[in-house]
Design a protein around this nucleic acid. Structure first.
Length: 511
RNA sequence: GGCCCCUUCGACUAGCGGUUAGGUCACCACCCUUUCAAGGUGGCGGCACGAGUUCGAAUCUCGUAGGGGUCACCA
């Protein structure tokens, strides 16, 4: 029997990391066993339905590189893959249960149900539907339904005994039948509930392994009862641990960023997100913590899933992302991915070799793709903004800058050795320490004090840019003497940028 | 609260009767160093508790505690 797994997200909002997580494990299991992975849209809640959510879910999986074998987009032999398009199927199946007397139509109004709960609370009884509608004769049920009276269809569940199932990860789980109230199968709007639709669809789509989040454990007996009512064989159930907020509660967007699109926008790589998610509850047999999707597939064994709810740790995700940026992806690939980001930020890219050099030198400092843009914009502008610190360094090193502007202008070959020689000679001849020379230079070249090696900067920027930037830093300083007050260092910090900007136009004509 | 699941460093985890309880992130220190990183070295830190089984328990059993989930015409 070929393995069939599925992910069944409901289109109710931004695609969730939990969906990606469960999808990943289902995908890995199916692939590992040469089976099929199905994506089914569970859009039976018309209240929470969001029109564009389905597209976003599909896009998310595409971005992650998790390709379903069957989906609304890919199609497949078991479609349609949207529950809203399968209403006739549910209709036919509910009729079976109705005719068999396993399900019944219930006509209680919301007020009635509320009153029932209230009374249960007062009398200290168990909360939940008490099965009062079961006694209504079938003829009467049908008559009232034919009359157009709103109603739901419920499953008549046993009152005694217990319903058990085997969980692949947890062993046998048994729940008393008195815990299972007659659950609604078909809502009054005619749409099926999750309980009903997922059982019917999983069976019809040939799903062999239901791997889903732990929150479903206690309602699994309902599903078991349904499988039994239809006379279908049970799939294997595997309830995955729930991703957690830092406070250990079930992951939620109130406490954590749960949107996959948001991580994408922050410059997180799909490979890194997947790798991170994979380590939430699962581990490689050899202990490796950095591995690809394919490597996970090859090694995937549910027996290695640990059941404690893993806390979603942003810091670790970011670190892993950094590892991918500098150790896993090659330079060209990183450059390729960062190109559109630079362009969106207003730094058109027309020199691939230059970009490669820039990425190479920025890489050790980047945790996300966005870091390249945030930290490396100065490579691509003609007019720099200077931070407050940078201005101080420039102001304190004017002589150095003047000297080096001259020295460098006489240099023919701008390679690292030659640059180093110039700098070394200069420092030696003036008996200056490295920081005294390099920091003003770094500030003049980048507008900031946090940047790569000065030698690298000079080599990458090249003669023309280097001389222009030094010259501009010098003229900028001489025309802004008031900035040199050494006393108001901290207070001026937030003003630094606007000030620098305000002054630029004044120097502008040459640019 | 009832029911169900879970429990190894702060976080993610390895371990599946005999280990000085290992690794990763974070944190700290040192090294490297030209700033910021990256990198290197070292450190801090854990088997929730109590019984039992056993020659021997992080590993098996049972209790207790703690955490989580679930009790909808949402999934």
């Amino acid at each position: 029997m070929t393995v069939v797994t599925r992910i069944a997200p409901s289109p109710t909002g931004d695609p969730h990391v939990g969906t990606a997580y469960v999808g990943l494990f289902n995908y890995a299991y199916a692939r590992r066993h040469g089976g099929r992975f199905v994506l089914r849209i569970e859009d039976t809640d018309r209240e929470r339905y969001q029109a564009d959510a389905e597209t976003h879910i599909l896009e998310m999986f595409a971005w992650l590189g998790i390709a379903p074998d069957e989906s609304p987009l890919a199609g497949g032999p078991n479609g349609p893959y949207k529950q809203s398009e399968r209403l006739e199927i549910y209709q036919a199946h509910i009729d079976q249960l109705l005719n068999a007397g396993v399900a019944y139509r219930a006509f209680e109004t919301e007020e009635e149900l509320e009153a029932m709960r209230k009374e249960q609370k007062q009398r200290g009884l168990k909360l939940g539907y008490d099965g009062r509608g079961r006694t209504l004769p079938k003829e009467e049920q049908d008559a009232r339904a034919n009359n157009g009276e709103p109603h739901v269809i419920r499953l008549a569940t046993p009152d005694e005994g217990e319903t058990a199932f085997d969980d692949l990860l947890r062993g046998q789980i048994a729940i008393g039948n008195d815990e299972i109230r007659d659950p609604v199968l078909i809502k009054s709007d005619g749409y099926p509930t999750y309980h009903f639709a997922n059982v019917v669809d999983d069976h019809l789509m040939g799903v062999t392994h239901v791997m889903r989040a732990e929150e479903w454990v206690t309602s699994t007996p309902i599903h078991v009862l349904l499988y039994q009512a239809f006379g279908w064989t049970l799939p294997t159930f595997a309830h995955l641990p729930l991703l957690r907020n830092p406070d250990k509660s079930k992951i939620s967007k109130r406490k954590l960023d749960t949107s996959v699109a948001s991580y994408r926008e922050q410059g997180i790589l799909p490979e890194a997100l997947l790798n991170f998610l994979a380590t939430m509850g699962w581990s490689m047999p050899d202990g490796r913590e950095v591995f690809t999707l394919d490597e996970m597939v090859d090694a995937f064994d549910p027996a290695r899933i640990s059941l404690g709810g893993p806390v979603f740790d942003l810091k670790k995700l970011r670190h892993l992302n950094g590892v991918y940026l500098r150790d896993v992806l090659d330079l060209e690939e990183v450059a390729r991915r960062v190109t559109p980001l630079f362009e969106q930020a207003g730094y058109p890219q027309d020199d691939p070799e230059y970009l490669l050099d820039v990425v190479d030198v920025l890489r050790p400092r980047a945790e996300t793709l966005n870091d390249f843009v945030d930290q490396g914009g100065y490579f691509f502008v003609d007019t720099l903004d200077y931070t407050d610190d940078a201005r101080k360094r420039i102001a304190g090193g004017q002589q150095v800058l003047e000297d080096l502007e001259r020295e460098l202008s006489m240099l023919d070959v701008f390679d690292e050795d030659a640059i180093d020689d110039v700098l070394e000679d200069y420092m030696r001849s003036r008996e200056l320490k490295k920081p005294a020379v390099l920091m003003p230079l770094r500030a003049a070249l980048t507008g900031t004090t946090n940047a790569p090696s000065v030698t690298d900067l000079i080599a990458i920027l090249g003669r023309s840019r280097v001389l222009t930037r030094i010259g501009r830093a010098l003229s900028d300083m001489t025309s802004s003497l008031p900035d040199d007050h050494p006393s108001d260092e901290d207070a001026a910090e937030t003003e630094a940028k606007p000030k620098a900007k305000a002054k630029d136009p004044a120097q502008g004509p040459s640019a």
